[in-house]
Design a protein around this nucleic acid. Structure first.
Lengths: 199, 199, 199, 199
DNA sequence: GATGAATGAGCCTTCATTCAT
DNA sequence: GATGAATGAAGGCTCATTCAT
């Protein structure tokens, strides 16, 4: 039963991630439960409030970003350009856009696990960016937060967006953004970072 | 009487823009009516459906972008760098983020006025970007749509976002994006533009 | 429209009183709306929360108790016994039982109108009881609160209660209670009254 | 094993009585199971429906009232006044208020054990009251049911009631009620008792 | 047998939209 | 024309009850 419960919980998180990514952070929880193939009350048993679910999704996703950053740092040894590109592509794939509110709101009240995950992710991404900066692939004056948040905001869900408009709008916006991250560009305005910065 | 009606209509559009920018595209229409100081029924008399209001807001904002582009093109004669910077800053100020859905959804069903406004804006922005490309300020391989959409997506509203996180996150993301627009960067993946592209 | 609104509001209060009296203070608000012949949203427009409705019912009922007390005081001139009996009968008819929670909970947070009604009712009932005590009809050592609360608690709704059990249980309990209020009985334990006592 | 089961069952009844007395007859059964320290399914195994549990609680409590009545009758030999007072105090302590619905609803469908307990309690209380009437301590024209029901209704739970209002409201109401039971008062209206009267 | 999880039904509340004045 | 009120549908959440381990 323990294994079952865990599996169910994970399938709910996965469903929530998909639904949030597709329909935005305000998507009805019924849709999440339906996608996970369970009743709405089961969702509520696992996550007593919407925030709890959002936090769980955020935590999971943060863990994935951390893993990607760790892997990319390792791969920097052989192929820094490729590692950097694959890292960005993978983060884009995560479609973190819908999670931004969950990570950004009421920072002080984030549950400990999420804070912990955030710190670990921040550390891993920072190490990666530092390395890329040493290698001359990323400009010196950016902060890890900004890279992840930039990707997140450029991948926020738009209903029907990709049917009617530029098919590859998001990849191209990401590409522009990445080009702007290269070290040869003009300098940025100074960053103002509070101690509680997300990443 | 005509003037009165027009003024009322404009005040509703203005209120809607403010409310959408602050609280997102899904904000309750009551809030719009309240901000405009009219009853909800008056709002509905002017804009029979939510989409009508959203379209009106989009049209107005598109007109402002067009005007900004026209002015910037003129100013390119004297001070291209400044003209470009001021254009971007002004577009950022418009906080178009919340309008993206209104512009992007159901493109074929956009009412004629909005299509018209869109075309005019597209033309004006295209002229500006062409000029900037000739002047070597903007890379060759971007499309006007992408510049405006990039700014829009980077300025979408986040509840409480700016209290807890980097105070100037958005300006910095915009700056990175602009840096990526400079001509000296690496080339972008090819754009895939349908005929009905927004801009 | 003003008159309409007021009438509607009153019909909602009346319906709520009936439903609460019949089915208890936790009765579904749908039932109230249905009895008033309006949609549930209309109820919510008039009374944004359940407490607001409960308070309105309480206020109305308190006003009626006050009026009854005033009238009884007048009638004391001619027929004190009859006045006292009619007052009690009328209060019993009000079936205040279900209101007790609304009056008793969160006293400090009672809205001003309800507090005001409570004070006026308290004053009127106090005058009546004082008079009855002078006339030797009510024992000296009781407090107005206790009389009204006693009646309220003895008339709280019991689902189906009167079908299966003593048909006139409540009148008889009230009669015993009244008998206990007569001045010739044994003395009561001392009352401990906070300043915020309900009545 | 039999003893274990019985003990568990009793602990559930005890928990249910406490929860019902505190939070009313509609309290969630989860709370009962939690207070008893068992899973909700265990509660349901012992009491297949909410009514079953309520009946068990009622039966137990009726048994205690019967025992109290028997003891009081014995004690009437030495100290009738004291016996009567202690009986009332003990019944008040039982906080039967929340049980009233369980005893009163759907009388015909009461399970045999509860009917049996009810009859025994009724007999014992009747014997006590008869004795007290002979001794001149209780008026002639009351029925045992009324005494017990009066106490029950005056002790029904009110959320937060005792924090904000008269601290000893209930004891005083009981005292008034008892005073009304004394034989020297005015006569009561006639009782109408169906054959299936509770007590 | 005991347990925690699953479920659906029900009530609460909000909001887009329509109606009556 | 402008307004406030009315409405139903939708989503949030809880809880009695059943199921699978």
């Amino acid at each position: 039963m323990r294994a079952d419960a865990l599996e169910r919980r994970n399938s709910l998180i996965k469903a929530a991630r998909a639904v949030f990514a597709d329909r935005g952070h305000d998507a009805p929880l019924d849709a999440v439960a339906a996608l996970a193939g369970v009743g709405i009350a089961t969702l509520y048993r696992n996550f007593p409030s919407r925030d709890d679910l959002a936090h769980a999704v955020a935590q999971t996703t943060l863990g994935e970003v951390r893993d990607l950053a760790v892997r990319a740092l390792v791969e920097c040894g052989d192929d820094p350009e490729g590692a950097w590109r694959r890292f960005v592509d993978a983060v884009v794939e995560l479609r973190m856009g819908a999670l931004v509110p969950a990570l950004v709101n009421s920072l002080d009240e984030l549950p400990p696990d999420v804070r912990e995950a955030r710190e670990q992710t921040k550390a891993a991404v920072t190490r990666l960016i530092r390395r890329l900066q040493e290698l001359g692939l990323v400009r010196e004056d950016v902060v890890p937060l900004e890279i992840v948040m930039g990707i997140a905001m450029l991948t926020r869900p738009h209903v029907l967006m990709f049917e009617d408009t530029t098919a590859n709008l998001v990849p191209r916006l990401i590409a522009v953004f990445l080009a702007g991250l290269r070290p040869d560009g003009v300098s940025l305005p100074p960053a103002i970072l509070p101690e509680t910065a997300v990443l």
